[in-house]
Design a protein around this nucleic acid. Sequence first.
DNA 1: CGGTGCCTTGATACCAGTCAAATAAAGTGG
DNA 2: CCACTTTATTTGACTGGTATCAAGGCACCG
Lengths: 235, 235
Amino acid sequence: MTDPCNPLCDNCAIDASAEVNIEGDAEMGMQSNGRRKMVYVKGESVFTEGSQPSGVFCLKKGKVKIHKTGSHKKEQILRFAREGQLLGTRALIRNEYYTSSATTIEGSVLCFIPKHEFLAKLGKDDDLKAFVLSNLSNNLKLAEDKITQLSISSVGQRLAIIILRLIEVYGFEEDGRTVAIELTREEMANLVGAANETTIRLLSSFKRKGLILLNGRKLTVINAADLAKLAIATS
Amino acid sequence: MTDPCNPLCDNCAIDASAEVNIEGDAEMGMQSNGRRKMVYVKGESVFTEGSQPSGVFCLKKGKVKIHKTGSHKKEQILRFAREGQLLGTRALIRNEYYTSSATTIEGSVLCFIPKHEFLAKLGKDDDLKAFVLSNLSNNLKLAEDKITQLSISSVGQRLAIIILRLIEVYGFEEDGRTVAIELTREEMANLVGAANETTIRLLSSFKRKGLILLNGRKLTVINAADLAKLAIATS
DNA sequence: CGGTGCCTTGATACCAGTCAAATAAAGTGG
DNA sequence: CCACTTTATTTGACTGGTATCAAGGCACCG
């Protein structure tokens, strides 16, 4: 279940622990090997749907959402990246434009690896190849799960599934039950693929049922077992 | 857009043009190199969700659907395989159980390549590696498109998109406008992620609007342009 | 204070799912 | 080849889950 570590960046000289919360635009420092360290504040775009990739990004620290904008307004969040994962590999491998966007949801540090370096290394480093293959496979599995959920589960079920999945990916805060990621209601809705208001109503209903607590954007899970039951209910 | 050819099977000794329509269970003939030629009739299962992969399959001839069964009854078709594509690579690469099933939708010939052979070749053949990477990437892109469609488009839009997509994948029959694949209404519904009856109603409405013709399971596209317009309408 | 953005709740409409029943089509055995 | 069963398709009526529209509350901030 856990991903292998990333052979491209394990020995990377970039210090991820650095100043994450710096204000202003993405800050970049050139490294000796052509890589660049990029520091982003919350809500900044890493790359956008439709643009041309010039390299891949490695998420060293922070949280990034991968999302897609449909024709009209509404966006769909496809997944969140974990620290250590590579972003933008799909487009580079197929030599296509990005078909999704990446945006930070908190201050983050990424390492940019130029196209030629990535492709060259991918050509000769077997560990990297295995890492990328495994990552793509896993993302495909998650995407397919999401397709199934969207077409056969209700919004309530999907919301329950997603809360549990957020715990899987990000875990809890120190209290051991508050999910370690803060999303706006809209992001939550874009994640489940439902309207904003519907999502709020369902969160409230979960709260009334004693499954969760809500405190602003903090979400505390009180009864994960019942939440899981709800997620798999027949209808 | 077109996939590169498949380095694993291009020089494969298996003759795909053989007796596709043989009755009875999947027939297999051992090849010198441990591969097996498998002949399937329509509707046979190639592999099923939850079982353990022992190799990969190459679709030499025919049509295969990749689908997933949710907890309760309804199935979701994720995609169709093209001739020349490998099936079941995801599970093997991650060393996991299958998370989806593959079923023939017409008489088909597949080549089974045992796990050890596939993994060994994947380890040393760069072309194969590139092929698999490219395929996984493309499947991921398609899956993500589907997620977006499911969450922001109406059933009618999705149906239009899927008809156009079927043309892309399978093309037309000799008349140049009848889609070269025959699906049951239920398969159509499982593909768009909607109820059977809803799908039928929408197909009828497309017919009334003069966009398509229906003749049993044959679907003839009369006005592809308007179908495309319908697919991207605001709501 | 009066924005501005986010969250919440209410009322209403409608898309699409479900249930039910009538054909139509496709097998099946004699 | 026909009668019979089974399965697939179609249409209708109804219901309900969600989206949409609208208004109000709340917090943060210049």
